[in-house]
């Protein structure tokens, strides 16, 4: 494995992404919304409960619909605290996964379909890198930033949630072990899912936009998780997170295997 060449390829793709406003703007705005705006607004939400006329009963009904395990967790908290814990720790947990998914998908689409569209792939194919090395470099170029954005987002989210919620919570309530599992086990797998999907999509489309549009369907499982959590069909706990991560890693492995077979010079040349 030519480590230096791999590093150079990753550097190339990342530099190109960083210099592209079209790619960077959504990759800055979306994490800002998820990691700062949402925890801050959520921590302010209990104030709305104190507004005369606000319907407390509705939120209590919402909590009652949650699974028993979750109600037990929320039991030590008063209603205001429960609002914050419920939203910051549980409702937004699946939404957090959208960020690594989006970052890896966008970079992968640019790296695979975009490279094909711009006609820059051919020069890379003439380098002494093997198909596998080229493929790995391109995967890592999309995967590493997704992980970094996730980790940075987690740190920012932790700070924002605890700072904004301090007045009501009076303690550091975030993160819990479920979130640690989510960030370090599920999030890398979800990033892998985004980019593996995009690799497959990119091999069948002509350009970046098309790849993004078709590859966007990968967000659907995440939306199902969001719906499942908010309707009380399930709730994110450590066991679920570990199991979910395992499932996604398996899917990743299958997609990776297909991707390696798809990413062959012959196919790229004939398809270009």
């Amino acid at each position: 494995m030519k480590k230096r060449a791999l590093q150079a390829m990753i550097r190339k793709d990342l530099t190109a992404v960083i210099r592209s406003k079209g790619l960077m703007i959504p990759m800055i705005i979306v994490p800002l919304i998820f990691f700062i705006l949402i925890p801050v607004l959520t921590s302010l939400a209990p104030n709305l409960i104190n507004i005369p006329g606000a319907n407390l009963a509705e939120f209590e009904t919402f909590l009652e619909r949650m699974p028993g395990g979750l109600q037990e967790i929320l039991a030590p908290y008063n209603l205001e605290q429960s609002v914050i814990v419920m939203m910051v720790v549980y409702v937004f947990a699946p939404m957090f996964l959208i960020v690594p998914l989006m970052v890896s998908s966008v970079i992968a689409a640019d790296s695979f379909a975009g490279e094909k569209e711009r006609g820059t792939i051919e020069a890379l194919l003439y380098t002494p890198l093997s198909d596998l090395e080229l493929f790995l470099a391109k995967l890592l170029a999309a995967w590493i930033p997704a992980l970094l954005v996730s980790l940075a987002g987690f740190v920012i989210y932790t700070l924002a949630a605890n700072l904004a919620g301090w007045r009501i919570m009076g303690e550091i309530f975030f993160p819990n072990w479920m979130w640690v599992g989510l960030v370090f086990w599920v999030s890398p797998a979800v990033a892998g899912l985004g980019l593996s999907t995009m690799v497959l999509v990119s091999s069948r489309v002509k350009g970046f936009q098309e790849a993004n549009q078709i590859g966007g369907v990968v967000v659907l499982p995440i939306l199902l998780l969001v719906i499942g959590q908010t309707t009380g069909v399930m709730y994110f706990n450590l066991s679920l997170v570990l199991l979910l991560g395992l499932l996604i890693w398996v899917v990743d492995a299958v997609l990776f295997w297909i991707g390696v077979r798809t990413f062959a010079r012959e196919r790229l040349v004939v398809g270009s």
Partner: peptide, 30 residues
Amino acid sequence: AQTGVLTETPSLDERLTGRENLAIFAALYQ
């Protein structure tokens, strides 16, 4: 590793500078 190929289109990354394009390919060519 022993040949140099000029493709029909320049196949350069236009978001990178000329120097960066060469430096990256220098690493790819070891």
